[in-house]
Design a protein around this nucleic acid. Structure first.
Lengths: 308, 308
DNA sequence: ATGCATTGTGTAAGTTACTTACAAACATTG
DNA sequence: CAATGTTTGTAAGTAACTTACACAATGCAT
């Protein structure tokens, strides 16, 4: 019985994200020639069908000649029809994976406008973590946290405060000594009590909140380590000894909550997992104890988050 | 200046997820004929190249005839080479979107084992929100929240408590009266003060925490509305008047934080956005005021989350 | 071990799909 | 109005995939 070989997806492209050919069609639509616009109309009218249709079918559907279809493809930046179809298939596949509205079996007309943007932004934020956060930095942070005699987490301003709480919740379970605060004066006082071997872990989406920067500076001054989850190139990233950064674009709609929370939560989770692995058996024992004691208070039902 | 037409991706397929052709190749590998296995090897050795290569190129690379390539495609369930390539392109595109390890430009050997699992689980959780949460329920919840004279949010146990805080942070900005607590006795007392027209919003990953269920029951009893973000079919989902539920599988590794937080944060964000849209101008005015007043305390740099 | 049947595979021919070249029609500019 | 440039279709050429058939290899039965 032979074993399937491994998979190699080819050398990594060094260009940014692969262009979304559907987006390209729409962006360039107004600059297309009339017959080419007819092709675009035909394609966008049923993208799935267009992926499978022959050049001739598309031409017939659009009421143009076959070479016009080739020209259309060239106009939107493809090498030819074959290239176009491959890209269209990929754009469609990614679209379905990210915006799989048809899989929720909800009629398109009934979806609120924010539905796709909120969830799409959340996904994009997580993707940015993959792109921007260095695993080495994560491992450095985990090493520092795992070895810390004490950890103080701090964040202000609502969501950063909630994330600081999440940080505490994630780390204390491994048996680490973690305290959390979201009040600037207490944070400053806490930072002043830190010593060499302690860690300050702060979270700030903008990286420019003076109170957060100040707390890190105080911790640094007293010889403690400092880790920041924040925005690249920000003043906070500059003062923290380890900076785990991701730049998350803001969706330009004030009514839609910021997606940066997803990115920062993801960073936190990766760091927490790395710390857990770093600690190894002691972390597992701590978790085991928690599980054991939480079992007494409520019936368990398969795998569940510990403690809600 | 013509406007680009809308997009129609074609009728929704009623089958489950589209098969992953790369997975099919690997699953069926041992059952393939020898020459077809050589094709599989050649394809998997460089999938990106294979997508673009002609039938003849693949055959040459595999050291087989062109018809063998066609046969290979048929063996793995495709109609032919054209179909195969389209599916391969899509599988590759989805794979990149979900597991784009090569885009982080980190050598595969250096990635910690949890890296892909943590982030992949986060993505899967968000996807489950799309699959499981009904937009109608979201709109119902938004309608109730937008009309509420008062909103009380509650969650216990660490992350649910953090999410309750996130809920408060998201909603109060629209000008709604929202208070948050994570202490069961205070929650019970708060619930007892609610009246018709008020809303209780609770978050619980398991849906079985007695304190949370109890708070909802109290609120119901006093004529207030109740909204739960929780697990489907749970006791909490049963007692809440509006239940926004998603079942998130737990990754069977105690050291990896639960991804359900991403799902619940996503639900929260969708509900918050829907509420904001429901409120419309009053929400925007409230946000404008916050922005205006936060500008005084720190320099703004493009679009940023409000208040960190 | 031998013969027969089945399976696997390649070569060659046929079909489909895409591209190129050229001519005609249309639009723009002077 | 004439000249030039752009757009588009028809027809021919090329690329890519599929089918048919023959041969080789393998497996099974005697």
């Amino acid at each position: 019985m032979s074993v399937a070989p491994g998979i190699d997806e080819g050398p990594a492209p060094h260009a940014p994200a692969r262009p979304d050919i559907i987006g390209e069609i729409k962006d360039r639509y107004s600059g297309l020639r009339p017959a080419e616009q007819a092709v675009a109309d035909a394609v966008l009218a049923d993208v799935r069908e267009a992926v499978r249709a022959s050049n001739g079918d598309i031409a017939a559907r659009a009421g143009v000649s076959q070479p016009t279809v080739t020209r259309f493809c060239r106009s939107i930046g493809c090498e030819g029809v074959r290239d176009f179809k491959l890209q269209l298939a990929q754009s469609l596949a990614v679209g379905e994976a990210f915006l799989a509205q048809d899989e929720t079996e909800v009629a398109p007309g009934e979806l609120p406008p924010f539905w796709t943007s909120v969830l799409g932004e959340a996904r994009a934020a997580i993707r940015e973590v993959e792109r921007q956060v260095s695993p080495d930095d994560v491992l450095d942070a985990a090493r520092a946290l795992a070895a810390a005699a004490r950890i103080a987490t701090f964040g202000v301003g609502g969501s950063s405060a909630a994330l600081a709480l999440e940080a505490q919740v994630r780390l204390f379970r491994y048996g680490l000594a973690v305290d959390v605060c979201s009040e600037p004066y207490v944070a400053r006082m806490t930072a002043a009590t830190l010593k060499p071997g302690d860690q300050m872990l702060v979270i700030s989406a903008t990286g420019r909140t003076p109170e957060v920067i100040e707390a890190v500076e105080i911790a640094n001054r007293y010889g403690a380590g400092s880790i920041a989850i924040t925005r690249p190139g920000s003043p906070l990233a500059d003062v923290a000894q380890i900076a785990l950064t991701a730049e998350i674009g803001e969706y330009p709609d004030a009514l839609t909550p910021t997606a940066s929370r997803f990115a920062f939560l993801a960073i936190l989770d990766v760091v927490a997992a790395a710390t857990g692995y770093r600690l190894g058996p002691t972390a597992r024992e701590s978790l085991r104890r928690i599980k054991f004691n939480m079992l007494d208070t409520r019936p368990a039902d398969g795998l569940e988050p510990l403690g809600d």
